[in-house]
Simulated assay, not measured.
Amino acid sequence: MDMAYFATGYSVNLPDWIGEELHGVPDIIPDRAERMALVHRLADRNWREGNGGPFAALVAESDTGRIVSVGVNVVLGSGISSAHAEVTALGTAQARVGSWDLGAEGLSPHELVVNWRPCVQCYGATMWSGVRTLIVAGSGPELEEISTFDEGPMVADWAEQFEARGIEVVQDVLRDEALAVFRAYRAAVDSGRVVVYNARSGDDAAE
Protein backbone atom coordinates (compact mmCIF):
# COMPACT_ATOMS: atom_id res chain seq x y z
CA MET A 1 0.00 0.00 0.00
CA ASP A 2 1.42 3.35 -1.06
CA MET A 3 1.16 5.63 1.99
CA ALA A 4 1.89 8.64 -0.19
CA TYR A 5 -1.68 8.27 -1.40
CA PHE A 6 -3.17 8.77 2.08
CA ALA A 7 -3.42 11.83 4.27
CA THR A 8 -1.79 11.14 7.62
CA GLY A 9 -3.10 14.10 9.53
CA TYR A 10 -5.16 17.26 9.45
CA SER A 11 -5.39 20.48 11.41
CA VAL A 12 -8.20 22.81 12.36
CA ASN A 13 -7.36 26.43 13.10
CA LEU A 14 -9.42 29.39 14.19
CA PRO A 15 -9.70 32.28 11.70
CA ASP A 16 -7.30 35.20 11.98
CA TRP A 17 -10.07 37.67 12.83
CA ILE A 18 -10.53 35.99 16.23
CA GLY A 19 -7.52 37.94 17.49
CA GLU A 20 -9.11 41.17 16.35
CA GLU A 21 -12.37 40.36 18.12
CA LEU A 22 -10.59 39.44 21.35
CA HIS A 23 -8.40 42.52 21.38
CA GLY A 24 -9.24 44.46 24.52
CA VAL A 25 -11.46 41.69 25.94
CA PRO A 26 -10.46 41.08 29.58
CA ASP A 27 -8.97 37.72 30.55
CA ILE A 28 -11.62 37.41 33.24
CA ILE A 29 -15.33 37.92 32.52
CA PRO A 30 -17.06 37.18 35.83
CA ASP A 31 -20.66 37.40 34.58
CA ARG A 32 -22.08 34.47 32.61
CA ALA A 33 -24.35 36.69 30.56
CA GLU A 34 -21.33 38.74 29.51
CA ARG A 35 -19.50 35.57 28.51
CA MET A 36 -22.51 34.58 26.43
CA ALA A 37 -22.61 38.03 24.84
CA LEU A 38 -19.03 37.46 23.63
CA VAL A 39 -20.10 34.10 22.18
CA HIS A 40 -22.95 35.77 20.28
CA ARG A 41 -20.57 38.39 18.89
CA LEU A 42 -18.19 35.72 17.62
CA ALA A 43 -21.04 33.64 16.16
CA ASP A 44 -22.44 36.59 14.24
CA ARG A 45 -19.10 37.54 12.75
CA ASN A 46 -18.24 33.92 11.94
CA TRP A 47 -20.95 33.37 9.36
CA ARG A 48 -20.43 36.83 7.91
CA GLU A 49 -16.75 35.98 7.34
CA GLY A 50 -17.70 32.74 5.56
CA ASN A 51 -15.94 30.37 7.97
CA GLY A 52 -19.02 28.30 8.76
CA GLY A 53 -22.37 28.46 10.49
CA PRO A 54 -23.54 31.05 13.06
CA PHE A 55 -22.06 29.20 16.00
CA ALA A 56 -19.45 30.02 18.63
CA ALA A 57 -18.42 28.77 22.05
CA LEU A 58 -15.95 29.45 24.81
CA VAL A 59 -14.47 27.57 27.73
CA ALA A 60 -14.02 29.40 31.03
CA GLU A 61 -13.02 28.60 34.57
CA SER A 62 -16.32 28.50 36.42
CA ASP A 63 -14.94 29.78 39.71
CA THR A 64 -13.13 32.81 38.32
CA GLY A 65 -14.66 33.57 34.91
CA ARG A 66 -11.20 33.36 33.34
CA ILE A 67 -11.51 32.67 29.61
CA VAL A 68 -9.50 29.61 28.65
CA SER A 69 -10.39 29.36 24.97
CA VAL A 70 -12.88 30.37 22.30
CA GLY A 71 -14.11 28.48 19.27
CA VAL A 72 -16.18 29.06 16.17
CA ASN A 73 -17.60 26.78 13.50
CA VAL A 74 -14.97 26.45 10.77
CA VAL A 75 -16.49 23.65 8.69
CA LEU A 76 -16.40 25.72 5.50
CA GLY A 77 -13.07 27.33 6.26
CA SER A 78 -11.31 24.06 7.10
CA GLY A 79 -13.18 21.57 4.93
CA ILE A 80 -13.58 19.35 8.01
CA SER A 81 -17.17 18.43 8.87
CA SER A 82 -16.49 17.93 12.57
CA ALA A 83 -14.98 21.40 13.07
CA HIS A 84 -17.93 22.75 15.05
CA ALA A 85 -17.68 25.58 17.57
CA GLU A 86 -17.85 23.33 20.62
CA VAL A 87 -15.18 21.03 19.22
CA THR A 88 -12.79 23.88 18.46
CA ALA A 89 -13.37 25.54 21.83
CA LEU A 90 -12.91 22.31 23.77
CA GLY A 91 -9.91 21.23 21.73
CA THR A 92 -8.07 24.51 22.12
CA ALA A 93 -8.88 24.55 25.85
CA GLN A 94 -7.46 21.05 26.25
CA ALA A 95 -4.36 22.09 24.33
CA ARG A 96 -3.96 25.12 26.58
CA VAL A 97 -4.24 23.22 29.88
CA GLY A 98 -2.32 20.22 28.56
CA SER A 99 -4.95 17.59 29.29
CA TRP A 100 -7.73 15.81 27.44
CA ASP A 101 -9.72 16.00 30.70
CA LEU A 102 -10.87 19.50 31.62
CA GLY A 103 -12.09 18.06 34.91
CA ALA A 104 -8.74 16.56 35.86
CA GLU A 105 -7.44 16.77 39.42
CA GLY A 106 -5.61 20.01 40.02
CA LEU A 107 -7.55 21.97 37.41
CA SER A 108 -10.22 24.54 38.13
CA PRO A 109 -13.71 23.36 37.13
CA HIS A 110 -14.42 24.40 33.55
CA GLU A 111 -17.62 25.35 31.76
CA LEU A 112 -18.59 25.43 28.11
CA VAL A 113 -20.65 28.42 26.97
CA VAL A 114 -22.35 27.96 23.58
CA ASN A 115 -25.04 29.82 21.67
CA TRP A 116 -27.45 26.86 21.47
CA ARG A 117 -27.83 23.31 22.65
CA PRO A 118 -25.08 21.16 21.10
CA CYS A 119 -25.83 19.03 18.04
CA VAL A 120 -25.53 15.25 18.32
CA GLN A 121 -21.79 15.33 17.58
CA CYS A 122 -21.01 18.08 20.06
CA TYR A 123 -23.27 16.48 22.67
CA GLY A 124 -20.80 13.62 22.94
CA ALA A 125 -17.77 15.87 22.65
CA THR A 126 -19.03 18.01 25.53
CA MET A 127 -19.96 15.03 27.70
CA TRP A 128 -16.49 13.49 27.35
CA SER A 129 -14.48 16.70 27.65
CA GLY A 130 -14.43 16.96 31.43
CA VAL A 131 -16.36 20.25 31.69
CA ARG A 132 -18.48 20.51 34.80
CA THR A 133 -21.05 22.97 33.44
CA LEU A 134 -22.75 23.55 30.09
CA ILE A 135 -24.32 26.96 29.54
CA VAL A 136 -26.57 27.40 26.50
CA ALA A 137 -28.56 30.29 25.10
CA GLY A 138 -31.44 27.98 24.19
CA SER A 139 -32.46 24.43 23.37
CA GLY A 140 -35.73 24.48 21.46
CA PRO A 141 -36.54 23.80 17.79
CA GLU A 142 -36.01 27.41 16.77
CA LEU A 143 -32.43 26.89 15.65
CA GLU A 144 -33.35 24.28 13.07
CA GLU A 145 -36.51 26.11 12.02
CA ILE A 146 -34.68 29.37 11.45
CA SER A 147 -31.28 28.24 10.17
CA THR A 148 -32.37 25.05 8.30
CA PHE A 149 -29.49 23.11 9.89
CA ASP A 150 -30.04 19.46 10.82
CA GLU A 151 -28.82 19.06 14.41
CA GLY A 152 -29.37 15.30 14.44
CA PRO A 153 -31.57 12.94 16.49
CA MET A 154 -31.04 14.40 19.96
CA VAL A 155 -32.50 12.46 22.88
CA ALA A 156 -35.39 14.13 24.68
CA ASP A 157 -33.67 13.91 28.08
CA TRP A 158 -30.38 15.36 26.83
CA ALA A 159 -30.03 17.77 29.77
CA GLU A 160 -30.85 15.10 32.34
CA GLN A 161 -28.15 12.88 30.83
CA PHE A 162 -25.58 15.61 31.41
CA GLU A 163 -26.78 16.15 34.96
CA ALA A 164 -26.59 12.40 35.66
CA ARG A 165 -22.88 12.60 34.79
CA GLY A 166 -22.20 15.51 37.08
CA ILE A 167 -22.43 18.22 34.41
CA GLU A 168 -24.70 21.10 35.36
CA VAL A 169 -26.84 22.51 32.53
CA VAL A 170 -27.82 26.19 32.56
CA GLN A 171 -30.30 27.21 29.86
CA ASP A 172 -31.80 30.36 28.34
CA VAL A 173 -28.88 32.75 28.84
CA LEU A 174 -29.42 35.61 26.34
CA ARG A 175 -31.79 33.45 24.30
CA ASP A 176 -33.31 36.31 22.28
CA GLU A 177 -29.86 37.50 21.25
CA ALA A 178 -29.05 34.02 19.93
CA LEU A 179 -32.23 33.97 17.85
CA ALA A 180 -31.38 37.39 16.41
CA VAL A 181 -28.07 36.00 15.10
CA PHE A 182 -29.85 33.00 13.55
CA ARG A 183 -32.43 35.24 11.88
CA ALA A 184 -29.72 37.43 10.38
CA TYR A 185 -28.05 34.29 9.07
CA ARG A 186 -31.33 33.01 7.61
CA ALA A 187 -31.88 36.27 5.76
CA ALA A 188 -28.47 35.80 4.14
CA VAL A 189 -29.37 32.21 3.25
CA ASP A 190 -32.61 33.29 1.62
CA SER A 191 -30.76 35.91 -0.41
CA GLY A 192 -28.23 33.34 -1.60
CA ARG A 193 -25.28 35.04 0.11
CA VAL A 194 -24.19 32.08 2.25
CA VAL A 195 -23.89 28.32 1.84
CA VAL A 196 -25.85 25.99 4.12
CA TYR A 197 -23.93 22.76 4.65
CA ASN A 198 -26.03 19.96 6.03
CA ALA A 199 -26.45 16.23 6.45
CA ARG A 200 -28.18 14.45 3.57
CA SER A 201 -31.77 13.35 3.96
CA GLY A 202 -32.33 10.01 2.25
CA ASP A 203 -31.14 10.29 -1.33
CA ASP A 204 -31.42 14.07 -1.38
CA ALA A 205 -28.16 16.01 -1.33
CA ALA A 206 -27.75 18.83 1.14
CA GLU A 207 -28.32 22.39 0.04
Rank of each mutant, 00 (worst) to 15 (best):
F6M: 14
T8N: 13
V12Y: 00
N13R: 14
N13L: 09
L14R: 04
P15S: 07
E20W: 07
L22S: 12
H23S: 15
H23Q: 15
G24M: 07
P26K: 05
I29A: 08
A33L: 06
R35T: 10
L38T: 05
L38K: 10
L38M: 13
R41N: 09
A43S: 12
A43V: 11
G50C: 06
G52I: 08
G53I: 07
P54Y: 04
P54C: 01
A56R: 05
L58I: 08
S62E: 13
I67Y: 04
V75A: 09
G77Q: 09
I80W: 00
S81R: 12
S82K: 13
H84Q: 11
T88I: 02
A89V: 03
L90D: 01
L90Y: 08
G91P: 03
T92R: 10
A93L: 04
S108C: 06
P109L: 06
P109R: 02
L112G: 11
V114W: 06
R117H: 05
R117D: 00
P118F: 03
V120C: 03
G124M: 06
M127L: 15
S129D: 05
R132S: 14
R132Q: 13
T133V: 10
T133D: 01
V136L: 03
G140I: 02
P141F: 03
L143P: 04
E145F: 08
I146Q: 02
S147G: 01
T148G: 09
M154R: 13
W158Y: 00
E160V: 05
Q161M: 10
D172R: 14
R175E: 13
L179F: 10
A180W: 01
V181R: 03
F182I: 11
R183W: 10
D190S: 12
V194T: 12
N198A: 07
N198L: 02
S201L: 12
D203E: 14
A206Q: 10
